[in-house]
């Protein structure tokens, strides 16, 4: 699990895993399509509500299954309280899970939703693009940033 974060490792992308939490079937289709084009070596785990997502992360911790390196969270599941409840739980699971960057990916461009999400500890907030063709661009930028530019947290050695 350690070496997947090693920048020099050619397996960096192949071993990568992203957790997607999205309740809309339409958006899920768009996300899957965009992931297929941009995140070719990234395995996507898809959950449609916050409870199963938390359950999945707990299972990872218990069984030693590799944790995702990034979490893409729809905020309104269907209410924003659902998204925030997930965030609070994730941050309190354990330090390793708590540091996985959570990127909110939401339809809402309400400045209150944005500010409050950051205040609650999301790594970043991205408003879903309006235009269908932009979805691929967005995911391309997401991948270039989180997988090719950022050094993702790896608290493995600390705990």
């Amino acid at each position: 699990m350690n070496d997947s974060r090693n920048k020099k490792s050619p397996n960096r992308l192949r071993k990568a895993r992203i957790l997607v939490i999205e309740d809309s079937a339409d958006h899920l289709l768009l996300i899957k399509n965009a992931l297929q084009q941009s995140f070719t070596d990234v395995e996507a785990v898809i959950m449609t509500d916050e409870h199963t997502a938390i359950h999945y992360l707990e299972e990872c911790m218990q069984t030693g299954l590799r944790l995702p390196q990034l979490i893409l969270l729809d905020l309104y599941l269907p209410e924003r309280e659902n998204g925030w409840a997930f965030l609070t739980k994730v941050k309190n699971l354990n330090p390793e899970v708590g540091q996985i960057p959570v990127v909110v990916f939401s339809n809402s461009c309400n400045s209150e939703d944005i500010a409050e999400s950051y205040d609650r500890g999301v790594a970043s907030y991205v408003v879903k693009p309006m235009n269908f063709t932009e979805w691929t661009d967005y995911f391309q930028t997401l991948k270039e940033y989180w997988w090719e530019t950022v050094l993702l947290p790896n608290t493995h050695s600390m705990y």
């Binding site: 400045s111 205040d119 970043s124 907030y125 991205v126 408003v127 930028t141 997401l142 270039e144 530019t149």
Partner: peptide, 18 residues
């Protein structure tokens, strides 16, 4: 460039008067 493209063009930043 990658940092700017992500934070200045794709991500939404919180700000008063966004």
């Amino acid at each position: 460039e990658k940092m700017f493209r992500y934070w200045l063009s794709v991500a939404s930043a919180p700000q008063a008067g966004n």
